[in-house]
Design a protein around this nucleic acid. Sequence first.
DNA 1: TTTCAACTGGACACTACTGTACAGTACGCC
DNA 2: GGCGTACTGTACAGTAGTGTCCAGTTGAAA
Lengths: 198, 198
Amino acid sequence: MDSPDVKKNKGISKDQWLVKALELLVSNGFEAVKIERLAKLLGTSRSGFYWHFKNRQDLLQHLLDFWALEYTSVLIDDLDIKKLPADKRLLSVMKMIRDHKLAKYDLAMNAWAQVDPLVDEIVQRVVKMRLDFSREIFVELGFVGDELEMRTRLFTCYHAWEGVMFADADQDKNLRLQTLRHKMFLTPSSSAGCGVQV
Amino acid sequence: MDSPDVKKNKGISKDQWLVKALELLVSNGFEAVKIERLAKLLGTSRSGFYWHFKNRQDLLQHLLDFWALEYTSVLIDDLDIKKLPADKRLLSVMKMIRDHKLAKYDLAMNAWAQVDPLVDEIVQRVVKMRLDFSREIFVELGFVGDELEMRTRLFTCYHAWEGVMFADADQDKNLRLQTLRHKMFLTPSSSAGCGVQV
DNA sequence: TTTCAACTGGACACTACTGTACAGTACGCC
DNA sequence: GGCGTACTGTACAGTAGTGTCCAGTTGAAA
């Protein structure tokens, strides 16, 4: 949450405006991101806002970059550093998505992308990054061609939205289902034997 | 789109307000559903609005019911009538979700549900209806227990969001992947043999 | 000690939107 | 022809939000 460069809390920093704006975006949609509301929530007046941002449009642009960086690039880099074996990496991706509650951010960003082509472009780029990351894992597991692509999409899509659809479900059951799902994704679905396509 | 009871187009009907409101909700989020905007879009003044609805809150409430009915109950009933064999029904569900572009409505409703507990309640009820519908299919296919639940969730979640994540992808490839996915959902994932758990 | 960046609040003019009120109109029915 | 239903536009008062200007404060660095 804290920015890397040390800020004495003498005022409201640019990042503080962004974090609150992201909060509002996530909970109420981009039309709800109002400067006056942000100021009220931060317990200050609007004037400081115009020090950091040109106007509302400028804030929204920065918000988009902020999300793409904080909630995708940083997390993917984090997973890349560890370089676990493929099947463990699959599990750690699932855990990361859950822990960071990425689904609710995705929800807001995708909704926003419906109107703004610029937002859509960034969102599509993020989706591509995620697909590429997952695909690499399934390549290591020995999948190729359409089978590889199908699994990559199914895995990425399910885990992106699981948090939205089954939020309040029973944790114990969730863990059992996750184990089963993990097994399903690992098991090759050849019709005859059970060998991996090569 | 037309309401069943015949309306002479002498004015803006309640359904016309609702349809436009749903449009605005889907594209810009619930905060964007403004009476003045609707009136402008419909080429009329706001006064007619207050004939049909008590106020903005009343419209939003009706909008919720409108969606739950038009985009879930009606469609599920439609699929139920046909009573195709389970594996064909699985395919027709996939097709229906795509054809009606349910994903973009889901997106808006889920985003809205993040703030309003009443909306969340309806959305959860709709999710439950869909899960129940899919589960029945997988029961007919011979799945039970956790394996049944895992497949039901994976299937429902993937198809609900596929349209958002992979909107502009190549149709030919999509069809090939769908066939593969269909096979994967039908094939039991037993570790030893390939028999269905009974 | 001054200077500057990073703020602060207050005031202004403006637009968007809300709910209410009210008078008028166009159609269908008895 | 008159009545009711289903609208229509206009006007008003009020709130929320925008961007701009400006004068003041505060902490660190030179």
